[in-house]
């Protein structure tokens, strides 16, 4: 981890691209992605770690970007929803009506995509364990469950761009 005082320029690796960005020490990764890099797919739903709307992947693992400082993300590979290209999970959400307003969708897809990548054979308990981190206020969750099961069933979740390391932490 790096040390940062006041405002400084850091380099983040986002969706396979190295991006230089000026941040305050206190800026969260969510704030930096949205306000400085124009990556608004990750959403602020609570900025308190409770809703998962801000979920992005850090080295392939879902994290709540509202709970991480931008400075902490230096040296890691970050994947946002904008970095997913035709991922099966996106298609599955599309086909299963896995959203209504769509505000939770980026976060949910990132969590589900990581689940399918890391635990392609996840059972219902593992699925619930992972997905309880995110809130959807519009759907009944059944639609999201159907989407995830569609992908888990196929055990295929290619489509991540950028570097993803799958080592268990």
């Amino acid at each position: 981890m790096m040390q940062l005082c006041g405002t400084d320029t850091i380099e983040l690796e986002v969706n396979g691209e190295k991006r230089k960005v000026t941040v305050r020490a206190a800026d969260t990764l969510l704030h930096t992605l949205r306000e400085k890099l124009g990556l608004t797919g990750a959403k602020p739903g609570c900025e308190n770690g409770d809703c998962g709307a801000c979920t992005v992947l850090l080295d392939g693992w879902p994290i709540k970007s509202c709970l991480m400082l931008a400075a902490e993300a230096v040296g890691h590979s970050i994947t946002t929803i904008e970095g997913l290209k035709n991922a099966p999970m996106q298609k599955a959400f599309f086909e299963n009506w896995g959203f209504q307003c769509g505000f939770c969708t980026s976060g949910f897809i990132m969590t589900c995509h990581a689940l399918a990548t890391i635990h392609p054979g996840a059972d219902d308990d593992t699925m619930a364990d992972w997905l309880q981190s995110n809130i959807c206020r519009c759907t009944s969750y059944e639609e999201i469950q159907n989407a995830v099961k569609q992908v888990l069933g196929k055990g295929d979740s290619s489509g991540v761009q950028g570097v993803v390391s799958m080592k268990e932490k």
Binding site: G45, C46, N48, G49, D50, C51, D124, M127, A128, L131, Q132, N134, I135, C136, R137, S140, Y141, E142, I144, Q145
Partner: peptide
């Protein structure tokens, strides 16, 4: 907050 105000979560449906 959403930590203390409880809503339905995945798996409880």
């Amino acid at each position: 907050s959403l930590r203390t105000y409880k809503v339905m979560r995945f798996g409880e449906q």
